[in-house]
Design a protein around this nucleic acid. Sequence first.
DNA 1: CTGTTAGCGCATTCAC
DNA 2: GTGAATGCGCTAACAG
Lengths: 343, 343
Amino acid sequence: MTADPRPPGFGRATIHDVARAAGVSVATVSKVANGRYGVAQRTVEHVSAVIEELGYETSLVARSLRSRRTNVIGILIAGFEPFSTELLKGISAAAVGSGYELLAYAGALTDDSFVGWERRSLSRLAGTLVDAAIIVTPSVRLPAASIPVVAIDPHTGRGDIPSVDADNVEGARIATRHLISLGHRRIAHVRGRGDLQSAVLRERGYRESLAEAGIPFDPDLVREGAYWGKPTTGAAQELLNRPDRPTAIFAANDLSALRVLEVAQELGIRVPEDLSIVGFDDIPESAASTPQLTTVAQPLHDMGAQALQMVLEMLRRGEPDQNHVHMPARLVVRGSTAPAPRT
Amino acid sequence: MTADPRPPGFGRATIHDVARAAGVSVATVSKVANGRYGVAQRTVEHVSAVIEELGYETSLVARSLRSRRTNVIGILIAGFEPFSTELLKGISAAAVGSGYELLAYAGALTDDSFVGWERRSLSRLAGTLVDAAIIVTPSVRLPAASIPVVAIDPHTGRGDIPSVDADNVEGARIATRHLISLGHRRIAHVRGRGDLQSAVLRERGYRESLAEAGIPFDPDLVREGAYWGKPTTGAAQELLNRPDRPTAIFAANDLSALRVLEVAQELGIRVPEDLSIVGFDDIPESAASTPQLTTVAQPLHDMGAQALQMVLEMLRRGEPDQNHVHMPARLVVRGSTAPAPRT
DNA sequence: CTGTTAGCGCATTCAC
DNA sequence: GTGAATGCGCTAACAG
């Protein structure tokens, strides 16, 4: 009789441990654990007690490999940042009571693996771990998957997979109109990453509103900010150091708008007195700045909830009610915009 | 020769599919996929091409079952809400470049499974799926695990597992002192869930500051708000409908402080003129209210980053540098507090 | 250098 | 009502 190589209390109990402790076969334990029929009442009680005592829980891994059903919905994101976490809040709230659990996977944390993370993550999880997936801002075309997949704000435009996004063009239009209505004429745009659909759409909305108001488009007033970090800082500095600097800037998202705000403050430019700034997204952080950021709100929570409903629908019926859901964007006026300074 | 039952493009490619397509064995594919030595250059190239073509990616599940190493760190949370997502942002930022990917698992989405979700989730994932885990606000004692585990803000106090939390007592003290320094004497407290360590600690800090200032403690001014929802609403209504209502309320967390603010506004009580409110946590949402919430900031991002460092350290050396990290809390004065109204 | 084989922990037949 | 055998996709010996 050899000693159990695994010290008690260390490591998880497996189905075998339970079977041994209860004096039954693993099959019986499996049946009890999954509430299947065909086990004597007495046995059920005994096994249940042992399961409880050992703190046994079926391994998600082993189960999924075998049974093709996990009751887990995967959410694939590049990382946990304000945009994706707002969506997660909406998804999570909508998932309560659905019988599904949520697993968010951040698969683009290493620089080299950045491109194509969504395809890689999907492959790694889809075979087995999750019953369905929601992919946040995928930037490559996804291959047909074997499980239901919904994309939120796909950066390649509506592909063949169901998607939900916000009205980027209209959102950009109302942001720009807001600035125009405040008397601004020199309105710059810090664009998002040029290879992304949303960035292109937002620039289009900006241009359309300009045209609508009869303001000539000045290519010099548009700079690529890539939605984030250094490029945004550079774009903001170039724009604000010009002798004929713009009186207003529409940034392609809140993160870059916030960056523009910081740069302006470093340069001693007062916001909103000397410069108005509008963002896009309405992440909670945008209300925490001083002044608070005027922005275009995407209904992030609703978009997440909608994506979850679609995935649930696909799980039930095989297909969603609508293939592409387009949600409205609306202007949220806060403290970073004001009438254009008199010249 | 039987036809492949799986239509091409549907379903993931498995290692067998690649092996068959490349005309080699699964072992060879495995070696190539994992960059192991012992394969001819020509073969590597050929197999790599097939892998690329088929979009093959090793299944996280199958791999973990076999190899005990996934390069994935699990984060166990009850759900995606402002508190946990702030921690996630910190963890995610700290994980960049670490070589690990992140998997956040929300295991308490169904009402019946609420209690003990952390134990259950840990059992389900720890066997194989993740190399280590960070558990957010566990409220039960965790069994010794086979993988490195760090708890953030454990609700049962420092147990035997490494943990990181903020200074709850001191945070509550400074919040209360702030109100006292503004001239408030009738200061109520909407307490968190009584069974949670942090709630007890915050009430203690509140009482200590009261005592310090020679203000007698009035048990009638303390109501349980459970950190959230209905209980908080009820507590706020009771407190604010009293003829001798308090001039200030210290709520145990921002979510309940925000709820108190809403109730006050519904009752036509002006904040901060008639009533001052202080919260705890400093989630981004607390700066988005009108007025913006004065609160005690926990360094949520730093706490997440710290927990990740500890887990990484345990993965490397077997144990963390320090077993319990205690981070400072600081007061953030915004618009929801003002001098006590003259009586 | 490459192929064969034995499990990893579990759920699911199919015998008993 | 219960147990033994089988396979899920993969990796790690080991054999060829």
